[in-house]
Each structure stands twice: as C-alpha cells, then as structure tokens.
Write a protein that binds this DNA or RNA. Structure first.
Length: 725
DNA sequence: GGTCCAACATTTTTT
DNA sequence: ATGTTGGACC
C-alpha cells in the first residue's frame, strides 16, 4: 500500500498521529477510538516513508496483539522485517544475545510462578528463616514489587525499616542468588536486566537505539518502571517514542504499573506532540454513556470527552439473579436468543473479575449446548503432566536448572529418594558441578547404595535426551520424553486418560512450532521461552465461532458485539481486597470501565443475591458501580432461578452490609433459624474465622449448608409449631 | 524409601 | 470446594 493510501479513511487526529514521524508522540486514545488502526498505519507509514521496517519496534501488551499487528502490517504490505512483540519477549530475545553481560548463560531458564515459588522457598530456608513467618508466596510479592520499582536488594536494605524488612532484604538477595546459580530469571528479571543493560552500557544502548530507531509502545498506561526505562533507553537520542494508551484503562497497578509514566510523558519529552482520540467508533451511545458515567466517579482522573456518532442501540441491561446458577442460565438464554435472532456465538463474550466465576458460567453454557472457549492459555502449561514433560526438556536444555531436574529426577518414581537427592545436592555443591554432571561421576558420591542403579539409568536417559535436543526437532524431544521417561507408563497405571490427551496436545504444539521454524531457526530453548511467555488471551481463537469467557483483565483491547459482565457485587467488583487493603477502588472502576467499553451493541451486567464462595453461601449486595449507572437507558431486570426475567429489579431492598460479629452472639448451636432463600433450618456448628463467623446450618429443604453469619441474613426462630425433621 | 491420608490454607487480577 | 503439605504407616 502506498503511503497516501495509509491515510485514507482516517479522521484528522488519527491522520495527525500517523503522519507524525520524528520526535516523541503521545496518543491518548479512549476506548474504541481506532487506536490499533492508528498505530498499525503509523508503523506502516514510517516503514514506507522515512525508514525501513527493520528499524521499527512495536511493543504490545500480549503476544496475540503482536501477532495481530504483524498480520495487519502484512496486509498493508509493510510487515516484513518489523519487530512486533511484548516487552517480555523483546527482553528475552535481547538477553539470549547479551546474556554474558548480565551473568547468564545463553540457555538460561525463565522461571514461571511455580518455579519461582520453589526458588523462594529455598531462599527463605537459606537465610535461616521460617517459611511460616516469611511465607514464600508473600515474599515473592514483595520481591516482585521491589523489582518492578527497579529496587535492587542493596537499595531495598537501605530503605528497610526494622528487623523484619532487613530480613526480607536478605531473602530478596538470597532469592536472586538461587536464580543466578541456576542461570534462571523470573519475569521481572527479564525487564530489569535489560533496563540495566541499557543504562550501564552506553555503547550497546546506542547500538540498540540505532537498530530500533522508531519505538511504539501500546498500552503505555500499564507500563512499570523497568518498561519505562527500556522504552526511554531505546529512544534517548532520537526521542522517537510513540506511546499510546488511556489512563482510564490502567488496570495493572497491582503489578507495578505506574500511571505517572503516561501522565508525565510531556514532562519527559517537553516537545512531545499529544494527540487525543476521543471519538468512539465501537459502541452504541447507550453503552458509551453508561461507561462514561461510571468512570466519571473516579476523582484522580483527567476528564476526557468521549463521544460517538454511532446510531442508537438497546438500553444497557442490569439483571439481578438469585444465585450463580440462575446468573449462568440467564446469560446462556440470552446468548441463545441472540443466535436465534441471527447472531453468532463468536460475537459474544462474558467477562468476570475472578476466574472462579467461570465455573458456573461454563456449566450453564454446556447445559444449553452453547460452544465456548476460555481465555486461559497459561492454565494448560500449568497442568502437572505438562509441567513434568517440560521439566525434562528444561533440565536437559539448561543443566543448571535445578528446579526442573529435581522435579523429574524421581518422577515417575524410580527409586531415587529424598536421602539420595540430598547426597547428590551436597556432592554437586562440593565438586562445584551441576547435578547432571555429577550423574556422570557417581563414583565420587558416597553411600548411594541401591540408588546407584536407577541413577545410572537416569543419567543415560538425560544424556540421550540432550542428544535428541541437539540433533532433532522439538517434537522429537517431547516424544522422546514421553516415550522413554516412564511417564507414559505412570499415567497408564493411574488410568489417567486426560494426562495422555493433554500430552498429545503438547506434542501437537511442538510439531506446530517445528513447522513454523522449518528454516532451522527454532530450538528447544526458544520453544520453552515462548511457552513461558504465553498469556491467557493468546489462547483465544476468533475464528472458532464460540462464546469467549475471560477475566476483565484479559479483556483489555478486545471488542465484541455482545458483552456480559457477571458478578457485579460488592466484594467481587469492586473486589474486597481493593476495598480493604488499599484505596484502589478507582482501579476497580477502571476495570469495570474496560469491561463495559468492550461491547459494541449489547451490554448486560449481572449480579446475584446469593453467591457461593469457598464452599459457603453468602448474601451479596449490589456493586457500587451499578449505582453509578445513568438513570436513563438502563433496563433493570429481576431474574428467577430458571434464568427467566420475572419483573423489574433495581429496588433497594438490600440488607445493610457487614454487621459486626458481635451482633451474632445470640447464635448458638441448635438454634432454629429462618433463611430468606433456604427456609427453616437448625444451626449445627459455629466457628469464627478471619473476622467472619462461619456456621453450618441444616435446612429442611436444602440440606446442610455452610454460611457466613454476617452475610447470610438469618432470622432467629424462637418457637416453631410444626415438625422440623 | 514410597504411599496414602488428613489437616490446612487459600487466589484477584498476570507477563 | 479444592489443592497442597507434612506426617504416619507400609
């Protein structure tokens, strides 16, 4: 496509953004304002007018977005040679090249969450602390936060306030050591190591800036400090940084995203051009107005004038359902109605705040035979059988990766027990060799006794696997593991068909990778890297013709004709963590805003009166955000248990939220109670837990249920004339 | 050294 | 409710 053609059909501000070639550019783009189109056309325009594609770097938020951008560029005839990727994959690639400058080997591992947890446990133990007082999970959070702020252990210690903090600094330092020993990095390291590389090596920085002369960063509102430094580092001299984003869609503050990156862009680049895209081409006025009304309640916000020229559509619907099952049925029926009216399943998405909610929704969809897919790419790779297979490949590809090797040294059980492993670890530490190397000189390890024989055959297995990896395809490597590791026999013995099916899928994925790298550019390490960096949305397939389920976080950047948001309840959206721990209700509101603005034509928000949570039922109250909707053009429905509307909802008949536990001292074992939904029952047990009071109540009609007294809205029944049991 | 069961905490969101 | 962990037992 010719440069002029790239400008066709663009509005004035869009054209301005596309044609701004040199110098800093900030595009503040409201939802549905054609942002993707603008950055794609701008990248193509750059590549065709003043530089070659090889000098353009486009950084997106997910691999999927990167892939789509590459595909669009190709359609525009400007794709070849351009780099489209995420921050993480860019950094991983750079580190494969410049690994020695940051103390890594070329075949370094990328630790996923589970690996990180294992490493953290070791770190806590190593500094002689108890995992009870320093929970590894929590430590990882603290460390990740520090890393996102580019705060190294030494600085962390300098800021430390009190004994506890200093100990955490020790843990942080030890954790990094544990990773480095294994030539491993975590997700945050990918970013901060590259950020440091750029800061500490001016010559290399200049070379990279020359390589990537034009940098585009999408979803800039969700970048953290390290990502900011990388973007800045790559545009230090030429300042050819184009950032696009929307402060109202910043939803990753909990992950260290720093809104000031986008808010201070003009201060960072005083001569920055700022383009605002405020016209929405996506949604009906009803949807946009509702979303705008909600987001307007945020106080820390720059006012943005969202408007649309789209024609009027249906009112936004709010449905109050009895419980999660009713909610699922309601949504499923609506989807069916949409399809009966000529719509397609693929037009529809269901969003929710927490993954847990997908379960009942899935049940409801399945019951009505509605095809669906869940955006959950990572979940597949977290399955035990998949992790086991991958651990073999990892351990062979990076012999320093102790976490991987220890995972599989006795999986399946082959007679290498805890004692033996301890001896091996001690032997490896003493001889300063990797475990894998030690396996080739077992004679130096004392007291192996009957473990020696399995060790020798394990050593042979791993050597053969390494040879397969070196000479064969990725598929060969995976198949070698499945065939020779004994895993297959283990699943067979356990009658675990799903494990075998999943591994089949893994082999397919490996084969697909091989096909895409038929030119010999692939490697097992690269494949593993790709897997480490998949995101949930990467798994979704628009062509599938199925309803798509995903979290609100995953929904960013996507759009659907018909969108549902489930679970608009206090404690869920906004999530209770944000209400209590931090004053982050505004981020929750932005999340709600993101969800609402995904819809093109029909937006339906649902909530339930009762919600099951960790095995107990509790009364809910309507989300704050529902109260913030406009009065006009919102239809309030009350939905019966079967999922059919039974009237108008929206009245305020709700119980006032949490009464203190003190009010419930009257509850005793054996007490007769009446529940508004389950009817008559008897209290079987009471147990205070975490500031709430849990109780088991046996209902005449519904059997025994576990309830939270503070939420359950129970009524004491003093005398009862009838027959209870 | 391996297996099985019970107690326990837990997850909000994700590269 | 579900998954993990550690301890008892084979």
């Amino acid at each position: 496509m010719e440069p002029d053609e790239l400008l066709e059909g663009l509005t004035e501000p869009q054209r301005e953004a596309v044609m701004h070639t040199d110098g800093p550019l900030l595009v503040i783009a409201g939802p549905g304002s054609g942002k993707t189109r603008v950055i794609t056309h701008r990248a193509a325009y750059l590549a065709q007018t003043i530089t070659s594609p090889a000098h353009v770097l486009a950084i997106t938020f997910t691999n999927k977005a990167a892939g789509e951008m590459a595909a669009r560029l190709e359609r525009l005839g400007a794709g070849a040679g351009m780099t489209c990727c995420t921050f993480h994959s860019l950094c991983a690639r750079l580190l494969r090249i410049y690994h020695d400058r940051v103390g890594l080997k070329a075949n370094f591992s990328i630790f996923d969450e589970a690996d990180q947890l294992t490493a953290m446990k070791e770190a806590v133990r190593r500094v002689d602390l108890s995992t009870d007082n320093f929970p590894p999970r929590q430590m990882l959070n603290v460390v990740s936060h520090a890393k996102n702020r580019m705060c190294a252990p030494a600085e962390f210690r300098a800021e430390a306030d009190g004994w506890q903090d200093r100990k955490v600094a020790d843990v942080y330092e030890a954790y990094n050591e544990v990773l480095t020993e294994q030539s491993a990095v975590d997700f945050d390291d990918l970013l901060i190591k590259v950020a440091h590389l750029l800061a500490d090596d001016p010559e290399l920085r200049a070379r990279l800036e020359d390589r990537y002369r034009y940098v585009l960063v999408d979803e800039y509102q969700d970048t953290n400090r390290a990502q900011y430094l990388i973007a800045r580092g790559l545009s230090l001299e030429r300042c050819n940084l184009c950032a696009t984003g929307d402060p109202d869609q910043s939803i990753y503050g909990w992950r260290g995203a720093d809104l000031s990156n986008i808010l201070d862009f003009e201060r960072d680049f005083p001569d920055a051009r700022v383009v605002r895209l405020e016209q929405n081409y996506r949604s009906t006025p009803q949807i946009l107005r509702a979303a705008d009304k909600v987001i307007a309640h945020n106080r820390q916000r720059k006012i943005k004038a969202l408007w649309t020229g789209n024609s009027e559509g249906a009112a936004v619907t709010v449905a109050e359902c009895e419980d999660a099952q009713g909610e699922g049925r309601f949504i499923a029926r609506r989807i069916l109605a949409h399809v009966e009216a000529g719509g397609r399943y693929g037009d529809v998405a269901i969003f929710y705040r927490v993954n847990m909610l997908s379960r009942t929704l899935e049940d409801a969809l399945r019951a009505l035979h509605i095809p669906y897919q869940i955006a959950r790419g990572v979940a597949f790779y977290q399955r035990k059988e998949i992790k086991d297979v991958l651990a073999y490949v990892k351990a062979a590809a990076n012999p320093d990766d102790r976490v991987a090797l220890l995972r599989i040294i006795n999986t399946p059980a082959r007679g290498i027990g805890k004692k033996t492993v301890e001896r091996l670890l001690a032997g490896a530490a003493e001889a300063n060799v990797t475990l894998l190397e030690l396996l080739d000189r077992l004679e130096t390890v004392p007291d192996l006794a009957r473990a020696e024989r399995p060790l020798r055959s394990f050593a042979t297995l791993m050597r053969d696997l390494q040879a397969t990896i070196a000479h064969g395809s990725v598929q060969d490597a995976v198949e070698f593991v499945v065939r020779h590791s004994g895993l297959l026999a283990m699943w067979g013995a356990a009658d675990d068909d799903s494990a075998m099916e999943n591994v089949e899928e893994l082999i397919n994925a490996a084969a697909e990778y091989d096909r895409q790298h038929a030119d010999g550019s692939g490697s097992a390490i690269d494949w593993l890297q790709q897997i480490s960096l998949v995101s949930d949305v990467d798994a979704i397939d628009e062509q599938l013709g199925a309803v798509t389920l995903m979290t609100l976080h995953a929904a960013k950047g996507l759009e659907y004709d018909v969108a549902f948001i489930a679970g608009l309840e206090q404690g869920l959206l906004p999530h209770e963590r944000s209400e209590i721990e931090r004053a982050d209700v505004e981020e929750e509101r932005r999340l709600c805003f993101v969800g609402m603005t995904r819809a093109r034509k029909i937006l339906t928000l649902t909530h339930t009166r009762w919600r099951d949570f960790r095995g107990m039922t509790r009364r809910t109250s309507r989300s704050l955000f529902l109260r913030e909707l406009p009065d006009e053009q919102v239809e309030w429905l009350a939905v019966g248990p079967d999922g059919e509307p039974v009237g108008t909802g929206g009245e305020n008949d709700e119980p006032e939220i949490p009464a203190s536990a003190m009010d419930y001292l009257e509850w005793r074992k054996g007490q007769l109670v009446r529940h508004p939904k389950f009817g008559l029952g008897r209290v079987m047990w009471i147990q205070p837990r975490g500031g709430r009071t849990h109780a088991g109540v046996r209902f005449t009609a519904y059997g025994e249920k576990t309830l939270v007294l503070e939420y359950a809205n129970l009524e004491v029944v003093e005398t009862y004339e009838g027959d209870l049991e």
